[in-house]
C-alpha cells in the first residue's frame, strides 16, 4: 500500500501551504486518477510521492516503510516532458540501462551490448515498440513519443511497486498514447503494480482509472 500521511508542503519562499494535513492511500493494483484544477499542485504531489521533493511534514510510506534513500525506489515517476527526464549527453541504451537493477556496477559499455540479451528488457523494449537502432541515438535525435517510450521502459525495468504518471501522454499523438498506455496497463496487471496518474483528458481517465481522487475537496 502506498500511503501519504499528514502531508504538508510549500515551495521555499512561498507564503501559502500547497498541502496541509493531506492523507491518502493507494492499494496494490489500483489505478487512481488525481483530479484538481490547473495550478493546484498535482505535479507537486506526484513529485512528493516519488521522492523528488521532500515534504515539510508528514511522510510517504510504501507497505509501511518510508522511501529508501539509496537504491531503486519502489515508486517510479514518469514525467510529462521526457526530454527533461533523460540525460541529453547519454545514448539511449545507457539511459535504459539505468533502469536495470545491478547494471550500475557493471561497466556501461558492456551493458549496452548485453541489454538485448536480457529477456526482461527485450519484452519491454518490444512491447513499447522501441527500435534497436534508437538505442545508439542521443535524445535530441528522437521525437517526444520515442523518448517517452524509453522513460516508460526505464521506469518499468526498475520493478516499481507503484507507478506515478504525470500527464505522460499529453504531448503525444493518439496512436502513440494508446500504444504506450496499452503496454503500461498490461504490465501493471502482470506485476500487480499500483498506478497514480494525472491526465487532463477525461476520456483517457475514464479508460484507465479504477478510482478518482478529487484533490480540491
Amino acid at each position: 500500500m502506498l500511503e501519504v500521511k499528514d502531508l504538508a508542503f510549500a515551495y521555499p519562499g512561498a507564503s501559502r501551504l500547497l498541502y496541509c494535513d493531506f492523507s491518502f492511500c493507494v492499494e496494490a493494483g489500483e489505478r487512481v486518477e488525481l483530479r484538481a484544477p490547473s495550478g493546484f499542485g498535482k505535479t507537486t504531489l506526484c513529485r512528493i510521492l516519488a521522492g523528488y521533493e521532500k515534504p515539510l511534514a508528514g511522510e510517504v510510506l510504501v507497505d509501511g516503510a518510508p522511501l529508501p534513500k539509496r537504491g531503486a525506489s519502489p515508486v517510479q515517476l514518469i514525467l510529462q516532458h521526457p526530454e527533461l527526464a533523460v540525460d541529453p549527453r547519454m545514448r539511449m541504451a545507457d539511459t535504459l540501462a539505468e533502469g536495470m537493477a545491478g547494471s550500475r556496477e557493471r561497466s556501461l559499455a558492456g551493458a549496452r551490448s548485453q541489454l538485448l540479451s536480457d529477456g526482461e528488457v527485450c519484452r519491454v523494449v518490444e512491447g513499447l515498440g522501441i527500435r534497436e537502432q534508437w538505442l545508439s541515438r542521443f535524445p535530441h535525435e528522437l521525437s517526444g513519443g520515442e523518448l517517452q517510450r524509453f522513460c516508460v521502459a526505464r521506469a518499468l525495468l526498475a520493478k516499481p511497486k507503484y507507478l506515478i504518471a504525470d500527464e505522460i501522454s499529453t504531448m503525444l499523438d493518439a496512436v502513440t498514447q494508446a500504444q504506450i498506455w496499452g503496454f503500461i496497463l498490461e504490465e501493471l496487471a502482470r506485476e500487480n503494480c499500483g498506478l497514480v496518474f494525472v491526465s487532463h483528458s477525461s476520456a483517457l481517465s475514464a479508460r484507465i482509472a479504477t478510482r478518482t481522487v478529487n484533490l480540491s475537496d
Binding site: G51, Y52, S73, L77, L79, V86, D87, R89, R104
Partner: peptide
C-alpha cells in the same frame, strides 16, 4: 537540480555513477 539527475537517483544510481555519467560530461 536537473530532472534527469533526480530520475537517475530514484532509479537507484549511486553518487559515483551520477558524478561520472551525468556530471562529468557537462
Amino acid at each position: 537540480d536537473s530532472t534527469f539527475v533526480a530520475a537517475a537517483r530514484r532509479l537507484g544510481a549511486s553518487n559515483v555513477h551520477i558524478a561520472l555519467r551525468h556530471m562529468l560530461p557537462y
